[in-house]
Each structure stands twice: as C-alpha cells, then as structure tokens.
C-alpha cells in the first residue's frame, strides 16, 4: 500500500465526503456512536516528522476489533442493497429496490430469483481478480478524497473527524483482508461513487445504498460513466497503478460495466436459486422459466417439434 497522506482536518473533511459518496458513511450512521476517535495529525510511535499512518493510528486493537465486528454486517448490507439495486435493473419486480428505481412490477423479478446472491457469490467466490488490480483499486477506495464540494446533509455530519479516521482504518482492514477479497463490496462502493456523481442527493435517503436510491435512468447514467470509462474515475483509480497496467484498468472498467449487467441478467433469469447441488434437481420452478414460459412441465428429454425437411430435401450434393 502506498503511504497515506497527512491526515489534517481538511483532508479528513474531504475524506468524509468521499466515504459518504461510496455509501459507507450513511450505512454506518447506526453504529456511529460506537466508533472511537483516533488522535488527529499527531506523531505516534513513528519518528516525529513522519506522517501518521492508519497502521500506527492510536485506536487500540481491542477497540478496532469491536468496531470491525459492528462494521462487517453493516458493510455487508451495504453491498447487498447496492447489488440488489443492480440486479433489478435487469428484472424489476414487486420489491423495494424496483420501487426505488421507479419501475415496480407485480410479477416476480430479480430479487425473487435470487439475483443478488447470485452476483455476490460470483464476485466473491469465483471471479479471478489479480492482486495487481485489486490492490490499487482498494488503495484508491481507502485513500481517495472528495473535493467536488458536494454538501453533506447534517445527518451525515455527525461523525467527529477523529471518528472518520477510525472508520477509514476499519474499512482498510476489511478491504485488505487477504483471505477473500470482498469484490462484491468493492463493486458496490464503485457503483455508489458513480451514483453520487450522477445525483449528489443520493448520499442520503431510504435504502442504505446511494446507487439503489437512483432512478433507472440515473443508474443507466452511472453505467455510462463506468463504461466510458469516465476520465475522473480513471484519474481516481489509476493513481496507484504501475505503468504497464494503466491501459489494463480502463479496459477492466469497460469489461466490468458489461459483465455486471450481463451477469445480472443471466442470474436473474436462470435456475441458480432453486438448484439443489446434491440431487442436481430443481427444488422449485425458476422465476425466469415462469416469466418466459420455458419448459412448462419442467426439464424434458425431447420435444415433438420435428416438422420434416425443408422442401423435403434431407441431403444435398457437393
């Protein structure tokens, strides 16, 4: 990880705005009072002239562990809400996420089809994601500042700057957990960042995720920025990339924009949620099958749809 900048109050204000934009500040407001404060811009165990680092900040390990226990489920819910906001783009239904994007539907949709879990499992369990890309991406998310001047509502201004620093420290620990990269969280934070670029008012509201608060049209705009990819986004993310990978990052974002929507569509209409891995059978009729009229009587081994041969020609010459 690159060195952290000096954590002056100005920087922490900008950092606080950034944390609000990626959804972390809003999601943690419920546990805010449990967040202890670090000491600001002071020397710690390091040499007197050295900047303070998260690793050397002055929150005790025990306090940090308690915070992590509180924070993990909160961030997990933030991920889920964000990715629920994603999958309903491809199959809106009677759920609150579809309602929030302005396209409620009476029949089952992505949420009922297990689309959220499908995406989370795919991202966290199976997407090969090289450290060379994930490490700088995480560095960007854990150090980026926001100086765009987005005004935070008072409800998001309750954390003391020292608490913001502690929150940052905890986020860093969670994102750098090298056992399993929580790619779903990384994707969720990125989508929220784009969401607040499209509509700054999405930093607060119902649901815990800025992205999930957007209208369908605004979500499409967020994808336009991701797919472009947007120069500001590239500027933020590639600052930490070694030179041979600069081109790889913008390519990755283009790929990601497509893949997120394609996987959402695939997962929202296939049998994943009702497939029993042990018996290799379905436990219920998949939502996508019901919506599309596919296999009305379940899996078959043949159809009576053989009409014959065109113009009765069953073989041709050279």
């Amino acid at each position: 990880m690159p060195d952290q900048p000096v954590r002056t109050p100005d920087r922490l204000l900008a950092r606080r705005t950034f944390l609000a934009r990626i959804g972390v500040l809003g999601a943690t407001s419920a546990v805010a009072t449990a967040i202890p404060a670090t000491t600001l811009a002071r020397t710690s165990q390091a040499a007197p002239a050295a900047p303070a680092h998260p690793d050397t900040a002055s929150v005790t390990d025990a306090a940090l562990d308690r915070l992590l226990d509180l924070l993990r489920p909160v961030l997990s819910e933030l991920s889920r809400d964000t990715l629920s906001g994603l999958v309903v783009m491809t199959s809106p239904g009677p759920d609150r996420f579809s309602a929030a994007q302005g396209t409620p539907r009476p029949e089952p949709g992505a949420i009922e089809a297990g689309g959220t879990d499908f995406i989370i499992e795919a991202l966290d369990g199976f997407v090969p994601f090289p450290d060379q890309l994930s490490t700088p991406l995480l560095a960007a998310l854990t150090t980026a500042l926001d100086d765009t001047g987005i005004a935070l509502p008072t409800s998001l201004n309750t954390l003391l700057l020292g608490q913001v620093a502690t929150l940052d420290q905890a986020l860093l620990v969670i994102l750098r957990n090298d056992q399993t990269l929580p790619l779903s969280l990384v994707v969720a934070l990125l989508l929220n960042l784009l969401a607040t670029q499209v509509n700054p008012l999405s930093v607060t509201g119902v649901l815990s995720s800025p992205f999930a608060r957007l209208s369908l049209d605004e979500k499409c705009r967020a994808f336009e920025l991701l797919e472009g990819p947007d120069a500001d986004l590239i500027g933020l993310l590639d600052a930490n990339l070694p030179e041979p990978l600069r081109d790889s990052l913008s390519g990755l974002l283009r790929f990601l924009a497509g893949a997120l929507l394609e996987f959402s569509a695939f997962g929202s209409y296939n049998e994943w949620a009702v497939f029993d891995r042990q018996t290799r059978e379905l436990t219920a009729r998949p939502v996508g099958w019901e919506l599309s009229g596919y296999q009305p009587d379940g899996v078959v081994h043949g159809w009576d749809d053989f009409i014959g041969y065109y113009q009765d020609r069953s073989e041709v010459g050279a």
């Binding site: 491809t90 959402s264 569509a265 695939f266 209409y269 296939n270 049998e271 996508g288």
Partner: peptide, 10 residues
C-alpha cells in the same frame, strides 16, 4: 434458454 437469452440481450 432464458438466462442466456437475457445475457445476449444486454
């Protein structure tokens, strides 16, 4: 099949 149909459409 339905999921692949929607994959292709997006």
């Amino acid at each position: 099949t339905p999921g692949l149909q929607q994959f292709a459409a997006v």
